[in-house]
Design a binder for these strands. Sequence first.
DNA 1: AAGAAATACTTGACTAGTCAATGGACTATG
DNA 2: CATAGTCCATTGACTAGTCAAGTATTTCTT
Lengths: 168, 168
Amino acid sequence: MPRRLQEEIRQTRPFRNAAQEASLSLLRTADLFRRLGAATLAPHDLTLQQYNVLRILRGANGPLPTLEIAERMLEQAPGITRLVDRLEAKQLVERIPCKTDRRQVHCRISATGLELLETLDPVMEEADGLLARALSPEQLQQLIDTLAAAREALTADLTALTETHQNA
Amino acid sequence: MPRRLQEEIRQTRPFRNAAQEASLSLLRTADLFRRLGAATLAPHDLTLQQYNVLRILRGANGPLPTLEIAERMLEQAPGITRLVDRLEAKQLVERIPCKTDRRQVHCRISATGLELLETLDPVMEEADGLLARALSPEQLQQLIDTLAAAREALTADLTALTETHQNA
DNA sequence: AAGAAATACTTGACTAGTCAATGGACTATG
DNA sequence: CATAGTCCATTGACTAGTCAAGTATTTCTT
């Protein structure tokens, strides 16, 4: 039986409405999940974001321009530079200046990086599996669909909001 | 019609399984929501975490020890100090040394802080309302229940994982 | 072909999360 | 009542997200 969110955050009053409770649930659950992932990667001296970059580079089957990586992550552009800096320092990623467009820098996962990912694959799949074990297949699919609908709405509103702010 | 997550992250291959898709959906949706909240608060020079602290202090009906605030947030202890530092610098929060236990520092929301929160209440409720408009009441409730079940499982695993790590 | 605009990063400054270590204050034990 | 252990809060060091500004390069305009 799931513990009430209200109790988790020690709030005495009930939620004003379901929307608020859903919002907080979403944030707390995602945070919990991120921490689980982070804790899993910590012994390997990788952060979640660094792991994401490696995954993207492996999936790309070849070098990728720096900003192309950023677009495939949740993240905004500027952060990617330093993220790749650290991966390059660990020799998990290589930077290759692009010959046809000298503004671009291509990033490629190194052999060491690939080996590391292969080590991590089963461990990280297990983390995903926790969700699968906690929820029924129907719940899992429901969750996917509901979240997709939510993102649909939120994306529109977010872009509207930031654009308005720019024009102000 | 919701855009496929697969397309959002430009992955050519389908997901290996529903658990993985659900995990990624969860992380992306929460991130979107956090950005929406951040964008809403930005014009008022508040971050989401600062806003959370103010909300907690308002809800507490009185001063709260510093670490008690941390426990009510997702966050680990050490971060709270600097968070309160910044709120104190903006004069939204006051620190009061505790007389009965001089290790403790009590934090209280200031009159300015309360006014600010009242200004923000309608704006932030609107952000929550986006979810409500995007989803049916049944979907909303389903989401709440499903996420609660997920947290139940994840909490257990997370504590197990970090404790194992400590003993290693 | 020269100048303007756009592109691909890069850097700096600030906020924040996390871990390890520290300091001051309280408590329990002997 | 002294001292060891515990607790509250803080600090330092590192990783990261975000915005604004800067640089080098390319493309567009004329």
